[in-house]
Design a protein around this nucleic acid. Structure first.
Lengths: 233, 233
DNA sequence: TTAAGTTAGTGTAAAATTAACACGAACAAA
DNA sequence: TTTGTTCGTGTTAATTTTACACTAACTTAA
């Protein structure tokens, strides 16, 4: 390969902020998956899963690969967040990191599925440990992005199981946005978008009235999206 | 410097989508500044201003530096957009580019101010020339970001001169969002935010009634922003 | 089997916001 | 002084958002 630009280059990494939500908890919290580093720098400290970009893969592919390698998670919603490039953010030398956000349902993604899972753990976003590098800033940026995004794009469903109840959906939004919604108004609004399909199933097992299960109609959303459809919560 | 990661690294560049708006035109269009490349690859083709990131500068600094070097523009609004990393996007070899968006007022930023200005030109976003690399995609992404952002954050003012009329402001929003607003409703809404200050000056010179000049109260906006203030158009 | 406890599911009315709409005032040029 | 053009201003109807309470359905324990 002939490349005219031969000056020193920063190393290029990807890091993933993985948001997990457990709809089975009474008072669920938004959680983030962290990895305990077993090499220097920051050996023994918690950090976001991530690693270096290879020469022949896209950034998205690198993020998906690292996600799978370090946590066992794959086939989930993932999108680019922001690129962090402070010259001193990695003590080993100049490293620029393209951060990604992934959304998963906690029930589906048990940690024991991961290759390297012993050193991984979920932390509620309000009780994060001290993180390596500038990962605290990365998580903060990711939370802001999620809060902004969830209001005008129906990505919240990515945090729920395929089938969910309306109460679970409401709880999810209340958790992310740190506010409450009126139950009837919330249902009216969601109903108005026509994006949920009753599956016919019911959520049973708790000592109260069973709740109908729904799934998100992503086909219909994609069709509407093209014609300038606006989701807003 | 001891750096444990010694594998091949992508080159790292920054590119700038500079949006310019000329409020003096009768039917203004949003424009983008392009540079005619004088080196291979894509020699003689139009491209976004940009260049490689140096080892000791932040990404923001690299974007600001390239902006100044290639266009003479400095001290303007600039923010990171997205990072493009398709393996084949640069024929010289793997190059990842962190794209930025800058907003300027066309009247203020004449091209002759730039060092290298002879090869730079503004193009209306609907009449862009064929662009080098994946810069068409970069511009498309930038337009989408601008359209989304302008509606819930008062960044539009960056495209106007310091003092502007309400009609100019309305025309700006109509141009960006490709829709019209009712004059009285638009003014009512803008007025409601209390973010404009009458400067006392008037825009004269046209054969019609003179218009009051305003400036954006960025101090007040910053103060309100902290307490969860919402701008929305 | 029945009672107690808990969450699911549903409608209406008031308040707030948004949308529609027209004309006299002010200025420059002819 | 007339003409052409943009500036600046309120009200009403329509729509959207908010506030609010009870019965239904299920499980568990008595």
């Amino acid at each position: 390969m002939s490349f005219t630009y031969k000056y020193p280059r920063p190393a290029l990494a990807v890091d993933c902020v993985i948001f997990g939500f457990d709809h089975t908890q009474e008072t669920p919290e938004l959680q983030t998956l962290c990895i305990e580093r077993n090499i220097a720098p920051f050996k023994g400290k918690w950090a976001l899963p991530g690693g270096f970009v290879q020469m022949d893969e896209t950034l998205d592919a690198a993020a998906a690969r690292e996600l799978k390698e370090e946590t066992g998670i794959e086939n989930v919603y993932i999108e680019q967040l922001y690129t962090f490039g402070a010259p001193d953010r990695d003590p080993r030398g100049r490293t620029v990191s393209v951060a990604y956000v992934a959304l998963v349902n906690l029930e589906k993604h048990h940690l024991d599925a991961g290759t390297d899972a012993k050193s991984a753990a979920w932390f509620p976003i309000n009780k994060l440990p001290i993180l390596a590098f500038d990962h605290k800033l990365v998580v903060k940026t990711a939370i802001e992005r999620l809060r902004g995004k969830v209001r005008y794009q129906p990505v919240g469903f990515e945090l729920l199981p395929d089938e969910f109840t309306l109460s679970e959906l409401q709880m999810l939004y209340e958790t992310i946005l740190e506010r409450t919604f009126d139950k009837r108004n919330f249902r009216k609004k969601i109903d108005g978008y026509g994006l949920l399909i009753e599956t016919g199933g019911m959520r049973r097992g708790k000592p109260n009235r069973a709740a109908k299960l729904y799934r998100f109609d992503s086909k219909r959303y994609k069709a509407l999206e093209k014609h300038g459809f606006l989701f807003e919560l």
